[in-house]
Amino acid sequence: MASESSNEIAKQRNAAKLNDVQQAIAKQESNIFAKNKARSVLEKQLKDDDLAIAKVAKAISDTEQALKDTQQKISILSDEKKQLTSQKLTQEQLLAKQLRSAYTTGQHDYLKLLLNQAQSEKIQRTITYYQYMNKARIDEIEKFQATIAQLVTVSAKHKEQVEQLQSLKQSQQKQRTKLSKNKDSRSKTLASLGKELLSSKQKLAKLKADEANLAAALQKLAALIRAEVDLMGLSKLKRKLSWPVKGRLLRSFGSKKQGYLKWKGVLLGAPVGRQVQTIHNGTVIFSDWLKGYGLLTVIDHGKGYMSLYAHNQTLLKSVGDQVETGEPIALVGQSGGQDQVGLYFEIRHQGQAVNPRLWCR
């Protein structure tokens, strides 16, 4: 209980920290593209579209897990039902055999007892035998009744889970319809943004502003971090970590981005909805939408090391959550106005971006 209370306090503290960071980001964002109000409105709409998609995608992810759990329960209950039905049949046959035996031998022996009352020793043995047989029958009847009761219970549970499965499938269909509508809305927003053409100079300014926004957020997060668990960083894990998602490398660390700007991470192409896994254990210190990066998760690994996972479809973890190596933290998407699906991934040490290839293999 003390551990749960401590975790809850830690989550509340981290939530308060995130709120401070979000306020700082909001203040900075209000100064970005202030003169281009039309584009600012569209970017705000893009954020709303991304968050709407994230909400439905998270619901679909939860529903899919519930479907798997329900199907597994149905499978277990089906096996149990078959086993109980077979057990019931065996008990019926055994009970019928005992009853037939008792009937045929009972008539004969009782008749003898009536005609040979002088043989007290034989009478006693016969009574003992009947008592033994009667107890055996009672035991079998009780077992049979227990099997019937258990079978009724299992059958009811099986029916309940089948109905639950149908309900989940209907819910999933509604969620997918809603997701499709939200995606259509985002496509229209992106099309409108595309009409607000930017010159190379404006694109460079936008990317610089986005990077500055991220750097400011990370700097503030670093100042607020207070380790709740002992994290050992990534310094001893070079070439030992797995990539957060399986996919084709679309952009490499250090390659040209726009003008003199270079990629500070890598872009990995992967299908929408594929799970994004954390590269190492740590604490989630940011889990929200950020201009230029869409739905973003940042994990603190200790000793000044952080990993960033951007442009997700939805986020599966909240600020303050402790995550283990390989644990799903998000689903691949293209939030933040990206024209292609994929995961943007960075590793940073003391605020500076480092080449992920030095750590991941």
Rank of each mutant, 00 (worst) to 15 (best):
A215D: 15
A216R: 15
A216I: 14
A217V: 06
A217L: 12
Q219E: 05
Q219K: 12
K220V: 03
A222V: 07
A222H: 13
L224K: 00
L224A: 05
L224S: 14
I225Y: 10
E228K: 08
E228R: 14
D230F: 04
G233W: 07
L234W: 01
S235M: 08
K240V: 01
L241I: 11
S242E: 04
W243H: 04
V245W: 00
V245Y: 01
K246L: 06
G247Y: 09
R248P: 08
L249D: 15
S255W: 11
S255V: 13
K256W: 02
K257M: 08
Y260G: 14
L261Y: 10
W263N: 14
G265M: 04
G265P: 02
G265F: 00
V266D: 05
L267Y: 07
L267A: 09
L268P: 00
L268I: 09
L268C: 07
L268Y: 00
A270E: 07
P271V: 03
G273V: 14
Q275N: 07
Q277H: 07
Q277L: 02
Q277T: 10
T283W: 00
T283Q: 15
I285N: 05
F286R: 01
S287C: 11
D288L: 09
D288R: 13
W289P: 13
W289Y: 10
W289Q: 10
L290R: 05
L290Y: 01
L290S: 06
L290T: 03
G292C: 01
G292W: 00
G292H: 00
Y293M: 03
L295K: 08
L295P: 07
D300G: 10
K303V: 01
G304P: 02
L308C: 14
L308Q: 06
Y309I: 10
Y309R: 11
A310N: 09
A310R: 13
H311K: 12
N312K: 07
N312V: 05
T314S: 06
L316G: 00
L316V: 03
K317D: 04
K317E: 06
G320L: 08
V323Q: 07
